[in-house]
Amino acid sequence: MIPGAFDYHSPRTLDEALSLLQKHAGEAKILAGGQSLIPAMRFRLAMPPILVDINRLDDLRYVEERGDHLAIGAMTREHALEDSQVVRSSYPLLHDTARVIADPLVRNQATVGGNIAHADPANDHPATMLAYHATVIAKGPSGERKIPIDDFFTGLFENAMKEDEILTEIRIPKPGANSGGAYTKLERKVGDYAISAAAVQLRLDGGTIAEARIGLTNVSAVPMRARAAEAELLGKSVSDAVIEAAGKAAAGECDPSPDLRGTIEYKRDMTRVMVKRSIHKAIARAKGGN
């Protein structure tokens, strides 16, 4: 399968990329890792007349703690997240996620920025970034904007960025003491999208759940937070009953579509299970375990 014809540009600087987007407004599409876009182009589901390939923007590849957050350059490959020492030691939810995105070959090309900007509810980073309360940095001709992740996903494959903006960085707040997180994904096979998956990030205060954010993968048309499930946890003492209640709340508030991966009932129940498993693991990690 051969993609439709297009004009190709490979800018060497962010400014050059931004001016190409401005010049070709409405026609240009950004090519990041290409692991979603190129298959879509081969199926002719996407036929952009102009591609702006930002793979030469090496300045957008970094993963490091800066001040109160972890800064991830948009062109960071998933593989680099999986291997990053700071991610492994301090951001277990992100590390869990990086290990189960697509497959190792795809992770060598796929980028964190692309995964998020694509705004596919079946992608794994949206749920994780929702759970982390991340901030997306978008640069455009008039400067830089900070977009809270809760405002970022506006529809199926739609995000809050303008056509002439480029996602340059994702910022994850440093988790405080007694925090823990986990990502649990049910998939038919490596490389498939999730049947359901749950990202949980929480903070304990003694035996009480002081903060909790939950993101869900592939059980809604737009990447979603499980707010009812979060409400079941907040201010409660940790117990199996509380965790079960949160799982049930998530099963109730998600909105999956039936497909080859299962019926609505099955996906709701698996969402309950994924949420529970992630909460258990997040609590264990908040207490210092693995």
Partner: peptide, 21 residues
């Protein structure tokens, strides 16, 4: 993964990259 080649040492799917890249 049948089309896997090494690009700068990293294995990638050569069906999911343009030659121009």
């Amino acid at each position: 993964g049948a089309c896997t080649v090494l690009v700068d040492g990293k294995p990638v799917k050569s069906c999911t990259m343009f030659a121009v890249q």
